[in-house]
Design a protein around this nucleic acid. Structure first.
Lengths: 205, 205
DNA sequence: ATCGAATTGTGTTACGTTTCACAATCTGCG
DNA sequence: CGCAGATTGTGAAACGTAACACAATTCGAT
């Protein structure tokens, strides 16, 4: 199967999964594309089309068994397994990220933390020991790390990204407010709250 | 001019603006759609089309004067002014948000901080005093606040959003991992790093 | 056993977005 | 001055995405 599934479809699957989790918690065992759509503000047709890329997960007349659908989506997204994650930057933002328990809870385990500042090296950040950047390459490779988060100042983000990629990282979550240039086979996602705010003010009076 | 500009166009303007800031800092005075596009991984045609929605900011043969274009974009996005922002939730995440200086730097001034926990009320968070939720409505209206950030647990996010909207908020930046149902005239943006990570694992081996 | 209400999966149509391609214009230089 | 090179703004074409609409199926009620 060489079908090329649109990235925009992939981007919605985690959202469906999140909604399915909530439905589970509320005691539901079965749901429908309509119910999901109502909750998410997405048309039921789109949800069905999205899921159809990966197979027929539902039953006509009945809908979708929530637990089954969750398992299937987790497999599609490859999050039924655990992932190791490197964190670069142990400043305010990096520290907050390292202390946040939500990543490990969801199977993303921070395994290494790096920082450039000599005075921080060797100190603990949560349960991690901060390593110097010159150990980055070796640590990434020893731990076979494919995912990294960047929480350094914008001016250093590109060189950090280059080093991460050289060390084998293929997915980057970038908290630095700058666009990264990366090879085609490397995936980058951006988190910049300012961008979101600036996008909304346009619509305000 | 009742032209309805696509939201996807609006969403790119802050990105252009960020890149223009970097170009300024590097000493450039003029740029072109090509140069911008190269930096951002966006086609030059798209950048020109996007900007053309708002007028001819460039000069044929020459390109765009960076400072002029920045000013124009800031006006379009309504970020040439200062905005007051309310923050709900003073837990780990809320505290990190409150302490982060980047918002004020960009004209988004956190003005009120709210939390449900009685033991936090009246304490300082950075330079803000944490207020109880029952003061939310009055404080929003007194301060004419239109923008809010939600940093409470998922299960309380919807009711907080409802209260914010009742108090006059029209733009919400939601850090809680849940979809919010809001009226048509209210804008919501989401920040959930887990979603970004789960979206990238699909492409990893 | 049959009916009716609910719901999926999907071919088709409608809509939205991006890219192409080029005339128009600008600048600097000989 | 007049030309070469660069670059914008934009109509038209190509591409991508979402919505529509319905046959097929399921299930519970009678």
């Amino acid at each position: 199967m060489t079908t090329n599934i649109p990235d925009i479809v992939i981007s919605r699957l985690p959202i469906y999964l999140r909604a399915l989790d909530h439905l589970s918690q509320e005691g539901h065992e079965v749901t429908s594309s309509q119910e999901l759509g109502r909750r998410l503000g997405i048309s039921s047709a789109q949800i069905r089309k999205d899921l159809a890329w990966f197979g027929g997960f539902g039953k006509q007349g009945t809908g979708y068994r929530i637990n089954y659908l969750k398992d299937q989506l987790r497999q599609v997204l490859k999050i039924e397994r655990e992932w190791k994650v490197a964190l670069v930057g142990a400043g305010d933002l990096g520290s907050a990220v390292a202390r946040y328990g939500g990543f490990a809870e969801r199977g993303f385990h921070i395994t290494c933390v790096f920082d450039a500042a000599p005075e921080k090296i060797g100190k603990h950040l949560g349960k991690f020991i901060i390593q110097p950047l010159n150990e980055l390459h070796a640590s990434l490779q020893n731990n076979k790390i494919q995912i990294a988060m960047i929480a350094v100042p914008a001016e250093h983000a590109q060189s950090v990204a280059d080093a991460l990629i050289a060390g084998g990282v293929r997915a980057i979550l970038n908290y630095a407010p700058i666009n990264l240039n990366v090879p085609e086979d490397v995936h980058v996602q951006y988190i910049d709250p300012i961008l979101h705010l600036q996008r909304m003010t346009y619509y305000l009076a």
